[in-house]
Structure formats: C-alpha cells, structure tokens
Design a protein around this nucleic acid. Structure first.
Lengths: 247, 247
DNA sequence: TGCCTACTTGTTACTTTTGACAGGTTTGAA
DNA sequence: TTCAAACCTGTCAAAAGTAACAAGTAGGCA
C-alpha cells in the first residue's frame, strides 16, 4: 500500500459522519491490504458486571451469531490477550503466548477457520473513555497468509485507533446526552482526592473548606456519575478517565 | 524501511534483557526511519497525586533538563493529547487540534525547536498496568520533515507498544517484588463487586458468605494493594487493571 | 437588576466501614 | 500425612459515609 493512500483513508475515517460511512471505509481498507475480513469490537465497561459489546464488522454473519450464542468470547485467546497486552498480534502467535494445555482456545480458532477466518491479526485498543476495544482483520487459508498479515500489521494498528476514536465519537453524538452533566471543578477536586483514599475530612483540610462542603460535592459527583456510593463513584471516575494524574 | 527489517527490530525489542539493550534498539530504529531523536516517557499513576515519570531517550540532555525544571509538561500540548486520544499525532497538527488562543503550548514547541526538535510524532500508550506512556520521535528542520515523519508513523506506532511492553517488563523484574502478593480468587471477587458499588453485606449475599467474611477479604485486599481504605483499593485495582469486565 | 450556577455550611439520624480482638475449616502440594 | 495458604466466622468500639432536613454567598450573564 502506498503511504499516501493510507493517509487518505485515515482522513476518510476521521471525517466519517455515520457508522455506515465508517463501515464503507473499513471495506476500502480491506481492499487495500488485501485481507477480506475486519471486525471492530467495543466493550463498554461502565459496569464491569454487565459490559456492553458493540461490533461493526464484515465477518460471516453465521460465525458471529455462533460466537456470541456459544459465548466463545470466554475462551477466545484474542479476548484474553487484549486485556493483558497492547501490541498487535497475529493469531497463530497466540498459541505460543498463551498456555493452551487444557484450554478451549485452540478450538475457537478451529471453529473460526471453518468460517473462512483462517488466520488474522488483532489489535488491542485502550482509551481514556470507559471503552476497551479490539480491531481484528482475518484472512482465509492461502500460502502467503502470514506475509500478507505481517505487511498489513502496522497499517492496521494505526487504522484501528483512528477507527475506534471516530466510532466512539459517533456513538456519543448519537446518544441522548440529556442526563450527562459535566462535573464542576470542585467536584473533580474532591473526587480526585477520594480516589487517593482520602476521607472527606482530609479532603476538607487539603482544599480548605469544611468537611460538610466536601460531602456536598462528593454527593453531587455521585449523582452526576450515577454512582450509588463513593467507592462506585471512584471506580466510574477512573474507568471513564475523569481522573488524571497530577503531572 | 523493509518490513523484514522492522520485524527483526521488533524481535530485538521483545528480547532485550536490559534497559541499555532497549536503548540501543531504539537507536537502530531511529537510523532505519531516518529520524534522529526518540523518547519513551512512562507515567506511573499508582498515585495520581504524585505520579512517577521515567524516561528513556536520546533527546538533547539540556532540553530534557530544562523541560522538567520548568515543568513544561504542564503546558505541553503532547501531554494534553495523550490523556485524551490514542492515535499517533504529528506535532504540527496539534496546533489545529487544540485551542491555543491563550495557551503556552506553542511556546513549548518553539523552545523544543531551539534544541533541534523541530517537528515530531507522538504516540499515546495505554496499558492495563498502572502506567500510561508516550513514545515520541523528533526531527530537526528540513524540507521533507513531514514526509519523513508520515512515512515513519505506522512503524513508530507498533514499535512504541512493543517498546513499552518490554520496558515495563524489565522494570518489574528489576524491582524487588518482595511485597507484591497476588490477590486470591475471593479477594478479587469481593473487590470486583466493591467496584460496582456493592456494600459488604450485598456482596455477602451475592457470593453466599457472611458479611464478616467479605470484610475479611476486602481487608486483605487493602493490605495487599497498599490501599488505606476501600475506595482507595477500588481506585488502585482499576488503575492496575486487576478488575476486568465480566464478558 | 434579576437569574442561574457553583460554592459554601450546618444538624441529626442511620448505615457502613475499619481496626483489633480470636479461632475453626478446607484444600492442595510436599 | 503434614503443612501452609486460603477460606470462613464471630464481637465490639470507633470512624466514616449517606440521606434528608435547610439556607446563605459569589460571580457571570442577559
């Protein structure tokens, strides 16, 4: 692929104004790298207990159906990988990386291969939002499969982050933001210290107000974040990237 | 650059057994992409209040000294960017991306340019560990600077994640892990639900033990994580990526 | 000037967490 | 089988957080 073509494509991603437009750009990308299948999976972990999974992809419908019906994500080595690492990985290398002694991981790959997803690349994507994501491309059985994947890897990596950022942006603008109020400066300040384990009284000493005021701000933070108590608010704030290190 | 050369380099990163070896590999990488300067900055945010910053780089010593002495990181547009985005960015484009109306951001770039860092690329790196990082490469003033940077971008992106992963690994093995005990299954379970905002009593109902037992496990979690209370433990657990969504 | 938002502070009653006391059971590896 | 780690449970007192009551101040904007 020409570098110029690629940057054009990135621009096209950055300017897509709908999910459908994004999908089309992904298809174009697939053509350029000579790999038929792509998938972007976005996991929203605002609640870790019931995370949301959104997918845009041109994987064979039947495979996706089967995959989620059988909860293959619980055995999928790719899923395990993206929660631990951040570098792109070729699927066949996951066999080395992980311990498959008693695992159903290999089986997932075998099943996928039966649907034409013989080998692939997966790229973990982490963000300051509550989302974690994976971008994968997959290819059928062919002699130069690994070579094609290797050639595509760096492009996929950068394409993936752009795609993800745009996707999240489109998702946000599509949702009704009626209930989404920003935290105020003081609320952020109190929450910051709460994340450091400070008690309300300690925070009051740090920011020089009464303890009651701190409780007031933290109470408002809870409401705005939809948290049921302080520890929940702390968890949500960090997951959403609201709390930033004080560099 | 040839793809083969690049993969060799990646392997070399993955196998480096010391920070010095890593630095050498970075130098080789710089030669290959024809860009003189690189920097990996790793921010440990176990404590958001006093994050640690570690740097490996061949930036001009004087610039680094000045940078930290003057706390330029507080104005640096790159730093702002990496806390919000995940795609690689060319420095000159940050001017468009951010609002510089009243900002000291441009000034940082001007100062850097005076030390030979005329333009560059920066890549945000996020991990499941408590670290967030940035990998930058920089180039002096030359006609084809932007072209060189654009050509290098995808390579830098993938190189950056490998470099980061290896760096963190080396750092961990270098530190004394005397006090680092793993959380047990039950401790993780209790902490998971604590992150969802559940009280000890609620957790006891969920996992079918007495409230006292939950308190016991959470107490042990606090100790192991070095947390001073529950909300601190929750914050640390999420920052360190100990809590994973239940997909 | 009037309005809105953010910020500030107080009390009281109730719930939850923490720390310090102490000890029994289960499970897996040497 | 023995040992260690993990797991489980109890009580009491002090500290901290939550909920619900109420209300004044400061600053920006129309």
């Amino acid at each position: 692929m020409q570098v110029e073509e690629f940057y054009e494509l990135l621009e096209s991603v950055d300017e897509s104004s709908s999910i459908d437009a994004l999908k089309e750009t992904c298809e174009r990308f697939c053509l350029l790298i000579d790999i038929p299948y792509y998938l972007l999976g976005v996991i929203g972990q605002t609640s870790s207990y019931s995370p949301t999974i959104r997918v845009i992809s041109n994987y064979p419908e039947k495979w996706l159906e089967l995959y989620f019906k059988e909860s293959e994500q619980q055995n999928d080595p790719v899923v395990k990988y993206i929660f631990e690492k951040q570098s792109p990985i070729r699927w066949d290398k996951l066999v080395e990386y992980q311990d498959f002694s008693s695992s159903k991981g290999l089986l997932v790959f075998e099943k996928a291969a039966a649907y034409g997803l013989y080998n692939g690349l997966s790229i973990p994507i982490r963000s300051t939002s509550e989302n974690i994501a994976v971008f994968s491309v997959a290819i059928g059985e062919r002699a130069d499969a690994n070579k094609v994947l290797d050639n595509a890897q760096m492009f996929c990596h950068t394409f993936a982050t752009h795609l993800f950022e745009r996707y999240v942006l489109l998702e946000i603008s599509a949702s009704d933001e009626t209930d989404r109020r920003e935290l105020t400066k003081r609320e952020l300040e109190c929450l910051f210290w709460a994340c450091e384990g400070k008690t309300a009284w300690e925070i009051s000493q740090i920011i020089n107000v009464s303890e009651r005021t701190v409780l007031f701000h933290l109470g408002n933070s809870n409401t705005k974040l939809g948290a049921i108590n302080r520890q929940h608010a702390v968890a949500l704030a960090i997951k959403k990237g609201i709390i930033k290190p004080n560099i």
